[in-house]
Nucleic acid binder design. Structure first.
Lengths: 184, 184
DNA sequence: TTATAATTTCAGGAAATACTGAAAATACAG
DNA sequence: CTGTATTTTCAGTATTTCCTGAAATTATAA
């Protein structure tokens, strides 16, 4: 059975799941797999969490769609086993990529379409101006995420540790014209 | 009535709302206010979206709890009017702050507690090691967000435009010992 | 193949969430 | 104050989402 430590974590992620657009089952399955030292099969998961076999099956399918768990086989056992990626940075990256694909991209595409429509009156002109602001903000932040995703974990870590002191670097960059586009 | 442009945007945000932990009503109210050129009162909102007065009232309350809309009064009118902040960067900042307060902080606090417990066996030791990894990742990324939040929109924008070229800057920073802690 | 183990699908019931209208509370003009 | 306009609360209902067990499908060992 689950240790009290694991159980608390699992219950917490069940609740949090709803805020991330997945249900309690999915959150709990993920949490259990994240903590587990070895891969688990669907029966083990169902038993540990008290869910029906079919519920576990659906939950695992969703987690696979999110690329948050991967399927593997144990030698001499024909059941499917599941595990989460080991590297938490990789998990973080996957999560932001999926969020982007599911939420950000559809929104961007709606905004782009809306901005192509000719405005009929002042109200629409104003609405479009607002949409343009949102569009530009989203495009800038996601574009940045895209680039930063490609950095190695170590570089990323350095950047994070740098924090707000990055301001100093930016000033320096301007003076030294490192930003790619030459500064006037 | 809503223009087709506004309507599409509003419906989209209604759907997206659910993914952000708010319901359709709340998402639509926010979207309507975001696009509106002037503040709206609850009756106007309810009529535009086809929601009951009480539903609008609850939705506005929630949006205020998120600090995503603010209340104001029109001279000579005793009804309450609502608007969204104008600056999209400010909106973005508010959103991340609230998300942090509601999701990240409770998780961090759970992890901290769990890490203080003495491990009973290897399984628990492994679980704690995983929790430590998650804890450190979250603490690092949110600590970084905290600092970056304090930057001016202009600085932030420069940082974003820099994107992955930030690597070059980091190398330079190490050479010049700008990172705050002196490099060995 | 065939038999059986394992997984998935899905209709229907259970649970959770959202929404409404009526009533209560609050705010404010006169 | 008093009366009225405005907002909020909340119990009940509608809607949506979740979860299960049985049946169907798929995979694999013999």
């Amino acid at each position: 059975m689950m240790s009290p430590l694991t159980e608390r974590f699992v219950l917490h992620f069940g609740e949090m799941g709803s805020r991330w657009g997945v249900n309690r089952t999915v959150g709990q399955i993920y949490a259990l797999l994240f903590l587990s030292a070895e891969p688990l099969n669907a029966d083990e998961i169902g038993e540990a969490l008290g869910f029906s076999r079919s519920n576990v099956s659906m939950g695992l399918k969703e987690l696979q769609a999110w690329r948050l768990v991967r399927l593997l086989h144990q030698p001499g056992d024909r059941r499917e086993y599941f595990e989460t990626p080991k590297d938490v940075w990789e998990i973080f990256r996957t999560l932001t990529e999926e969020k982007r694909r599911r939420e950000v991209e559809p929104t961007l595409s709606l905004l782009r379409d809306a901005l192509l429509e000719p405005a009929q009156d002042d109200t629409e002109r104003h609405a479009q101006a607002r949409m343009r602001e949102m569009h530009d903000l989203i495009e800038m932040t996601t574009g940045w995420f895209d680039e930063v995703h490609r950095l190695s974990p170590e570089t990323l870590q350095k950047l994070m540790q740098l924090g707000a002191r990055v301001t100093k670097l930016l000033e320096m960059a301007e003076r030294l014209r490192i930003g790619g586009k030459e500064v006037k």
